[in-house]
Amino acid sequence: MKSENDNLIIDGIKTLLDVSPLYGNIVMNLVREVNPQAANPLALKWQGHHWYLLVNPNLLTARFTSHNQVAAALAHEALHVIWQHPTRYAKEREHNQMVDIGTDLAVNQYLPRDLGELPGAISFQTINELYHINLPHNQDSSTYISLLSEVDQKNSRAKKRALPKHTEWQSASNSIEEAESALKNVIKKANDDTKYAGRGNVSGAVLQQISEVVVPKRNWKSILRSGISQAPNKKKDSRARFNRRQAYRLDLPGEISRYDTEIAVFIDNSASISNSQASEFLANAMQITKQFDINVHFFSFDTKVHQIKNIKTWQRHAGGGTTFQSIFDALPALKFFPLQTLVVIFTDGDGEKELIQTKFKHVYWLLPEGQTLSIPSPFGKVITL
């Protein structure tokens, strides 16, 4: 006969598989170990060439009272897997508490809303109460850890509250490469399991992170080159080519493609962009002129679009906020046409959270590693620099 603890765990897994099959299948691809001595209700541990979901049934039933809450706690662990936190921070020694808080804050904002609140979860409100700061949403854990590490903890109330600890992640520190590979395997298997059945209600930022693992890496310039080759083009006669319809007629010209495609490059110049990021954007943007023999036009943007007359001599002056819609409002005004224009946007992804209205669909969003795009349902291709 199953105990009440077993029923709560099993019902929690079933609920998660119903609400969010992607998260549920990540949990299903972990080896489960029940340990009443474990320090946390749930934890991720590397042992014997496998990733384990460590379960303390006593703490689980003490903290969570419904299968929805258990499902939310399981989703929390699944999100740590998706962002590969156990291997990224396995060797972290400095600011351990900041790692625990920063990683939890990063994943808790993507928990399935249908499951309700996760008891004891670190939230932006929690951080405001403890450290008296307002942190930006939809950022990577590394950003939160960095910002929290700058806070003077002597005047905070953090030490008086029981905060999460992920000490089990250190179990992977002595075999980090194998552990990384195994963690990615868990993500790939879960993604394959839900590819046809559906992933459930999952944020675009989570899907982007999944694609970072399951989609083979390609240099952004090769992706852009592929986009150019697929753009509409016209044909023109050429004596350098055989006529494909009548190859034996040497007097007839062949045809070669003539591309009318133009590239419009937009560099994020808002206040959230650091000088080092701006320099990286500029260096990558200048490579486009060297690698592609088509018309390339450069612009900077914040809440407005500004033309860059000479990319080689452009001097950056930090602007204000970021509005992606300003780009797509400016394109038709600048006489660009949707079918013939490839839009390349260098940005940290931090802009408005509303849907973008535009007919321009050949769009390439180039973001620094670890950053996500703020707009819902991103169109085009989101690429990591």
Score class of each variant (00 low, 15 high):
I223F: 00
K236H: 12
R225H: 13
L252P: 03
D237C: 08
K236E: 14
D260M: 03
S226G: 09
D251G: 08
Q230N: 13
R258Y: 14
R249F: 09
N233T: 06
I256P: 06
D251S: 14
R244P: 04
N243Q: 03
R244L: 14
N243F: 03
R241V: 04
I223Y: 00
R258T: 14
K235G: 06
R245N: 08
S229W: 10
A247V: 15
R245G: 05
N233F: 11
R258D: 13
E255H: 11
L250P: 01
R241A: 03
D260T: 05
D251C: 07
D260A: 02
S257W: 04
L250D: 10
F242M: 04
K236T: 13
N233S: 11
R241P: 01
Y248S: 15
G254M: 05
L252Q: 14
D251F: 12
Q246L: 08
R239P: 00
S229D: 07
R258P: 02
G254L: 06
A247N: 09
Q230S: 15
I256N: 11
R241E: 04
E255P: 04
A247M: 15
I256H: 09
A247F: 15
R239V: 08
D237A: 14
Y259G: 05
E255V: 11
Y259E: 07
Y259F: 14
S238G: 03
A231Q: 05
A240Y: 12
Q230I: 12
L252Y: 13
S257D: 05
K235N: 10
R245K: 11
R239I: 07
L250A: 13
Q230R: 11
Y248M: 13
F242Y: 07
Y259N: 10
I256D: 07
D251M: 09
E255N: 15
L252E: 13
G254Q: 08
A247I: 15
P253E: 03
D251K: 10
Y248N: 14
I223M: 02
D260E: 08
R249L: 07
N243K: 01
A240L: 13
E255C: 05
Q246C: 00
P232W: 09
L250K: 14
P253N: 09
R245E: 03
Q246A: 06
K234Q: 07
I228A: 09
I256Q: 10
I223N: 00
G227F: 07
D251L: 10
R258G: 07
R244A: 13
R239G: 01
Q246S: 04
S238A: 08
N243A: 01
S257M: 03
A247K: 10
N233W: 04
A247G: 09
L250R: 10
A231I: 05
L252T: 08
S257H: 06
R258V: 14
K236V: 13
L224P: 01
P253H: 06
S238Q: 04
F242H: 02
R239W: 10
R239Y: 10
R249Q: 04
R249H: 00
E255Y: 07
R241T: 01
R244S: 12
N243S: 02
R225Q: 13
P232Y: 09
